[in-house]
Write a protein that binds this DNA or RNA. Structure first.
Lengths: 325, 325
DNA sequence: ATGAAAGCGCTAACAG
DNA sequence: CTGTTAGCGCTTTCAT
């Protein structure tokens, strides 16, 4: 900036003004500065800017996995909005691990972000302490709680699990198996499903857990386990994701088991392919793009010091009935 | 740091040393400092650190889309390695748009990253200029070129397209349709495929282009177009992604068209589900995890000032024959 | 092994 | 509208 200023014949501070608020500089000066910038190929140093102003224009975000479309699409819509407002996003993966999350929160906080986005509402006490201590706005997404660190936007996994249980009971199923990936929120849905299913007169569901990430292969393996280990013949399969549900359907088809005739299948997430496979998947829809946008707009209000409004934004879910159940 | 130092009874500089290299501080002092840090909840300011040291421990990355598994899995393996070495990743999406990419490169450069990862090898002249001017290591992935900005790791899309053409000709197909998403690299594969297919004695392929992102729905629509608009009845369909191929297969099944009997289908990417759907997809496999790792290790060598080694790392591709062709 | 001091490249008063 | 000046919180010599 000093160099640019010298070439343009003004002080370094004037160059700073020209860049941050062109209207505070005379048109002629501005033009000279612009030329000097072009001539030198000057790229402003945001690091120095952040240190001096204690505003980084950086938002950091933590998700369990970036290859999981549920989280990546949420971050995509969130990022697009924040980027329009001049923020950049530093993104990391926790791998569904609370310890890793805590370490990452500390690492992210050291970059002095203007705000932070977290997936889920369950964090270590130490993590909460650091976050609160940092004083920055924090938005927790993809779940809700009465006690957010700052505010949250999501839906109730317990409610969703219960709703699916009532839905399949009304369809007449009294036997069920749950296929669940290694995700705390998925387990909460499963438990709520099981409890409500029994309360509504069903038998206790068989629980099949998938190690590792959800995948079509895991779904196929889960159905094999339900069939061969648990002797599950007919009823409903509630999967923690559409990917798993698709795997269950594929395995059933290969084995000549009719869906939904013999086996009804319910997924979760309403991913793109859910409506397009055969039979189309009955699933639970959460508007992830809207969720990302709401998180962004609410965060912006907080960043601009406006009235925070409600601190628990429940976007709900919707059961979409298609061919598989 | 000053506060921590005062509490520990040492100077601020000693606290800095304790944090960056504990061995340069006596064990007793170190312990006192550790206690002071715990007592105050001190979180180091990486912004100030970066300004003072001109090392940010930040790598920025640009991908066309974070919701596309091809790119997100690549970034995932890249990030994991870089994170182990103490780097964080600032990630943005270009949306397959060169102008957007240029703007993002400038924005990213202002954060003074230690290195940058770019998807593809085609960038605007201005982008190249900024990158070279910045003097930082730049790795271009998912494509190769003889003239990388710095170095690249990927494979030849032209070679891959040609290889598929030879492969399906050997299978005996002389009619083909290409289903291509809106991606410059996919178009390059398509063109190479078409040229080689004709050279090898096939008829000129019918080209169906999908607007927007690849999806199962787009694949289904593409087959409808091939069938109804172009009167394509039998032959091979070369899709620019497995998602599209899956859509083509689904639509064929709904219409009672036999795969691979009437229609052979070839995908691209070998995504998780490719081997798991019915029939399993014949596709082109590129080891994305390995690609991310190689990009990371090569970058690290450059960051540590070691011999850059080869500047064009070709990881190749492999045609995986399964049931669909 | 530790302290003192000089920046890193900006922003933000404060003057004029 | 523009220049001067004092930091922002660290790292990095240079001494001791």
């Amino acid at each position: 900036m000093t160099t640019v200023g010298r070439i343009a014949g003004v002080s370094q501070a004037t160059v700073s003004r020209a860049l941050s608020d062109p209207s505070r500089v005379s048109p002629e000066t501005l033009e000279k500065i612009r030329q000097a910038i072009r001539a030198t190929g000057f790229v402003p140093n945001a690091v120095a800017g952040a240190l001096a102003s204690s505003r980084s224009n950086l938002i950091t975000a933590l998700v369990p996995s970036i290859t999981n479309i549920v989280y990546s699409s949420l971050i995509q819509s969130f990022s697009r909005v924040m980027r329009e407002w001049g923020y950049q996003i530093l993104l990391s993966e926790t791998g569904f691990d609370a310890e890793e999350e805590e370490a990452l929160i500390a690492a992210h906080l050291s970059r002095r972000p203007d705000a932070m986005l977290l997936t889920g509402t369950r964090h270590s006490p130490q993590a909460r302490k650091m976050l609160i201590g940092s004083g920055i706005p924090v938005v927790e997404v993809w779940d809700i709680t009465d006690t957010p660190i700052d505010f949250c936007v999501g839906f109730s996994h317990v409610e969703a699990g219960r709703a699916v249980a009532r839905f399949v009971r009304e369809l007449g199923h009294d036997r069920a198996v749950t296929v669940t990936a290694n995700d705390e929120r998925a387990r909460r849905r499963r438990d709520a499903f099981a409890e409500s299913f029994v309360q509504a007169g069903g038998t206790t569901p068989v629980a099949v857990d998938c190690p590792g990430a959800a995948s079509l292969a895991a779904g196929r393996a889960a159905l094999v386990e339900a069939l061969e280990v648990h002797g599950f013949g007919r009823g409903v399969v509630f999967c923690s994701s559409d990917l798993l549900a698709h795997g269950v359907v594929s395995e059933a088809q290969v084995r000549g088991i009719a869906v939904p005739g013999d086996l009804a299948v319910v997924g979760f997430g309403d991913q793109d392919f859910a409506a397009m496979v055969e039979p189309p998947l009955t699933t639970v829809r959460v508007d992830r793009a809207e969720l990302g946008r709401r998180a962004a707009t609410a965060l912006r209000a907080r960043l601009e010091g406006n009235d925070p409004g409600e601190t628990v934004i429940d976007l709900g879910y919707r059961i979409i009935r298609r061919g598989s159940a």
